[in-house]
Amino acid sequence: MRLTLLAAACLLIATQARAQDAAHTLAQDAILVDTHIDAPTELLERWSDLGGEVKDREFDYVKARKGGLDVAFMSIYTSPKQDEDDTAWQVANAMIDGVDALVQRHPDKFALLTSPGDAARLRVGGRVLLPLGMENGAPLVDKLENVQFFFNRGVRYITLAHSAPNRLADSSYSTDKKWNGLSDFGRQVVAEMNRLGMMVDVSHLADASALEAIRISTVPVIASHSAFRHFTPGFERNISDEIAKAVAAKGGVVQVPFGTMFINPASAADGQALYHARQAFDRRNAELKAQGKPQADRDAFVKAWEAAHPVRSSTLTQVLDQIDYGVKLLGIDHVGIGSDFDGVGGELANELKTVADYPNLVAGLQARGYKDADIRKILGGNLLRVWGVIEAGAAK
């Protein structure tokens, strides 16, 4: 009996080892594309040489190669505050400078990527390719020519708004809907992005803004890092079935993130409540300022709120459930990954904590019965195809 149990245990271990090997092999062989990594924000706040292994960063070269990552969209993120104080343009350029410096220091490890057609050639030798995605259209200020300026600097998608309304569109987080769609300038920006072959990103947008962007675009659009609202009712930041279907019908792709706030319903509710609480707090402070009265301490307010709402956890299973739902809703050709590594303060699904962990995702997909050819689509094939269609649209 003991020998039988021992044999069964050995067989299980061997089977698990083979599954891990198969997942690792596929992650290394496929062209793996992640459409949202916030390394530039971290580089600007505290420079670290990502050409080596950096223990407190979720993206670096060593981890990327271990995980099989080939194409890592660097997020050029600017905040609503930077929009308000007119520093967004400078901050965005400084972040791009940081990515450029990384490539110049390590041309054997990194390369800028500005066209999907160059991916196969540039990744030879183990390079990790770094296209740019602008998270928040604030750096455009109100100058349409800045779309061309940032395109020339390597930006290949723009998330039209972030966590507050801006000059282009409304935010999903904010209760204030300034445009109920796109502004006139926002519509001009979408047209200019179509002309240049720059991807329009509807993640973070309020529903009406996302739907109008999809409707007026002459080419497919993407959601660079949006989980499905089906799992988090009332959380507008996640994409609704209606909008996801519109993205797919246009030929685009929805990229699933790994952040706990997006995939854990309780965490999503906490996140939405915090944004609304901060909005109410800021309105009250504005009233106090107008009355000449002392204002409350915003940092203390947020700290107290967060203390009353402890950080929650999430799982690889929840990420896989998101992908399953997207595939069933939209089809295998319209789902990808946009992790949000380095952008959510480490609040990520367990087993998906850094870019070294993509093989865990692959193993999970294989265990759920996905064929390797379909996993390749999810890992990056879909995004590269859509980007190519958008680029070809500009050529026309």
Score class of each variant (00 low, 15 high):
residue 159 T to A: 13
residue 159 T to I: 12
residue 159 T to M: 10
residue 160 L to C: 06
residue 160 L to G: 01
residue 160 L to A: 08
residue 161 A to Y: 01
residue 161 A to I: 01
residue 162 H to R: 02
residue 162 H to W: 15
residue 163 S to M: 13
residue 164 A to T: 03
residue 164 A to P: 00
residue 165 P to T: 11
residue 166 N to S: 06
residue 166 N to G: 06
residue 166 N to E: 09
residue 166 N to W: 05
residue 166 N to T: 09
residue 167 R to F: 11
residue 168 L to C: 06
residue 168 L to M: 14
residue 169 A to M: 10
residue 169 A to T: 09
residue 170 D to K: 12
residue 170 D to M: 05
residue 171 S to Q: 07
residue 171 S to D: 08
residue 171 S to W: 10
residue 171 S to T: 11
residue 171 S to N: 03
residue 171 S to K: 06
residue 171 S to M: 11
residue 171 S to A: 15
residue 172 S to D: 10
residue 172 S to M: 05
residue 172 S to N: 11
residue 172 S to R: 06
residue 173 Y to L: 15
residue 174 S to W: 07
residue 174 S to G: 04
residue 174 S to P: 08
residue 175 T to D: 13
residue 175 T to I: 07
residue 175 T to L: 14
residue 175 T to P: 13
residue 176 D to A: 13
residue 177 K to H: 14
residue 178 K to Q: 14
residue 178 K to L: 14
residue 178 K to P: 00
residue 178 K to T: 15
residue 179 W to I: 02
residue 179 W to M: 07
residue 180 N to Q: 14
residue 180 N to K: 13
residue 180 N to P: 00
residue 180 N to T: 08
residue 180 N to M: 04
residue 181 G to M: 12
residue 181 G to T: 09
residue 182 L to A: 03
residue 182 L to H: 10
residue 183 S to W: 11
residue 183 S to V: 09
residue 183 S to D: 06
residue 183 S to A: 08
residue 183 S to K: 09
residue 183 S to F: 08
residue 184 D to I: 11
residue 184 D to T: 12
residue 184 D to M: 10
residue 185 F to G: 08
residue 185 F to Y: 12
residue 185 F to N: 01
residue 186 G to R: 04
residue 186 G to L: 00
residue 186 G to F: 01
residue 186 G to V: 09
residue 187 R to N: 02
residue 187 R to S: 05
residue 187 R to L: 07
residue 187 R to Q: 13
residue 187 R to A: 06
residue 188 Q to F: 00
residue 188 Q to T: 05
residue 188 Q to H: 11
residue 188 Q to M: 14
residue 189 V to F: 01
residue 189 V to Q: 08
residue 191 A to Y: 05
residue 191 A to E: 13
residue 191 A to F: 00
residue 191 A to H: 11
residue 191 A to K: 15
residue 191 A to V: 10
residue 192 E to R: 15
residue 192 E to F: 02
residue 192 E to N: 02
residue 194 N to F: 05
residue 194 N to L: 04
residue 194 N to Y: 04
residue 195 R to L: 00
residue 195 R to M: 00
